[in-house]
Nucleic acid binder design. Structure first.
Lengths: 141, 141
DNA sequence: CTTGACCTTCCCCCTGCTGGAAGCCCCATC
DNA sequence: GATGGGGCTTCCAGCAGGGGGAAGGTCAAG
């Protein structure tokens, strides 16, 4: 298979596939004309990568997962550990974003949104203590 | 004020402040020795930027907000629009992450986490339809 | 034979910094 | 006056995770 076919079937852009080869995640063979020649196994790996990326794993996580996937004597605990760590990162990220969202929502709600210049959002950003005390649920320090 | 002082007071690294100057967010004067000479206004702007960044605004958002902040004839609606758009981005991001989290949590919970190789996490990533149908709350398409 | 769709490599661009090297500057100390 | 240790300056390189596009080789159809 050429890269276009594989791109379509794995739903990864060709650019991305070339990049994954560059960083050693896949190692397709080459035809005599220099074209990459992907096997079914390569395609399978790329689909694996696409799915892992869609779950938010970093490329380094993907490398580990792919190694485990190919290691028939792996321990499922090792896979679980990678996934659990990622899960924790996601949970922390969500918590961060929810804090931001709460603060922003509060500020946006309090802003009149008219043609006048007075704005609690800018007041908060400018560090007005009154604005901070009154408008921001997230603490400032 | 020299950059070190300003860095401390704005709680931004000196490197970051130089970067903000490079992209035109601040324009400190220069002493005869070439050192950056920050005014109170510069410091104020940097603190504004630090706060806006901590709320997750992009640097381009920051540029807009700073312009509005300095425009005494601004309409608060314009500020609100920037913040609302950012709020929407955050909300979408949280939704994405929550989808990932639900799927991952499900997979991690179903994995035995022992020394055996069988693992629903890898089965899902590998696109096993059985694993997908049974293990993944997030749809695959 | 030409056209157009592929494919190749190459390098720069993005966001938002961070680290490091090489080289001034300034103040204190010996 | 030399020296030492901070500061400060610039520039260069790099991180993730690719995207855009140029310049050129290849291949099958008409």
């Amino acid at each position: 298979m050429n890269i276009g076919t594989v791109a379509e079937r794995s739903s990864l852009p060709a650019k991305t596939i070339r990049y994954y080869e560059e960083i050693g995640l896949v190692r397709p063979a080459r035809d005599s004309n220099g074209y990459r020649a992907f096997s079914d196994t390569d395609l399978h790996k790329l689909a694996f990568l696409a799915r892992a990326r869609s779950l938010g794993f970093t490329l380094e996580d993907c490398r580990s997962l792919l190694r485990l996937y190919e290691d028939r004597s792996r321990a499922s605990a090792d896979v679980q550990a990678v996934a659990q760590e990622h899960l924790d990162r996601i949970t922390r990220k969500i918590a961060d974003l929810e804090l931001m969202r709460a603060t922003l929502r509060h500020l946006v709600d309090r802003c009149q949104g008219d043609e006048r210049p007075d704005c609690p959002i800018l007041a908060d950003l400018a560090g007005s203590d009154a604005a901070a005390a009154e408008a921001a649920p997230a603490e400032r320090h």
